[in-house]
Simulated scan of single mutants.
Amino acid sequence: MSVYLDHAATTPVRPTAAQAWLGAVTTGGNPSSLHGDGRVARRTLEESREAVARALGVGPSEVVLTAGGTEADNLGVKGLYAARQRSDPRRTRVLCSPVEHHAVLDCVLWLEQERGAQVVWLPVDATGRVDVAAARDLLEQDPDATALLTCMWANNEVGTVQPVAELVRAAHAVGVPVHVDAVQAVGWLEGSLSALGADTLAVSGHKLGAPVGSGALVVRRGVELEAVLHGGGQERGVRSGTVDAGAAAALAVAVAEAVAEQPVESVRVAALRDRLAAGVLALDPGAVVRGADPGEPGARLPTNLHVTFSGCEGDSLLYLFDAQGVSVSTGSACRAGVPEPSHVLRAIGVGEDDARGALRFSFGRTSSEEDVDRALAVLPGVLARARAAAARVAGTVAAS
Rank of each mutant, 00 (worst) to 15 (best):
V52C: 02
G38K: 09
A299G: 10
M1A: 10
V218W: 02
V158C: 07
E140R: 15
S240N: 11
V328C: 11
L65R: 15
R290C: 07
L193Y: 05
A216V: 04
V280T: 05
R365H: 08
P177W: 00
A249T: 14
G57Q: 08
Q184K: 13
P31F: 09
W188A: 03
S332C: 14
V186M: 04
G286T: 07
T303G: 05
G159W: 12
V280R: 07
D131S: 05
A377N: 14
D88N: 13
G23P: 10
D73H: 12
G57V: 09
E50F: 11
V243C: 09
S240R: 14
A147D: 00
L276C: 00
D293N: 15
L359H: 07
A292N: 04
V64T: 11
N156S: 14
A55I: 06
S33P: 09
L45D: 02
S214R: 08
D88I: 11
W110M: 13
V326S: 08
S61R: 13
A154V: 08
P31G: 06
G291M: 03
V168S: 12
P341L: 00
L317A: 04
V344S: 00
Q162P: 10
A24D: 06
A41K: 02
R169H: 14
L75D: 00
V124E: 00
R136K: 06
P302V: 01
C334N: 15
P143C: 02
S342D: 04
R86V: 10
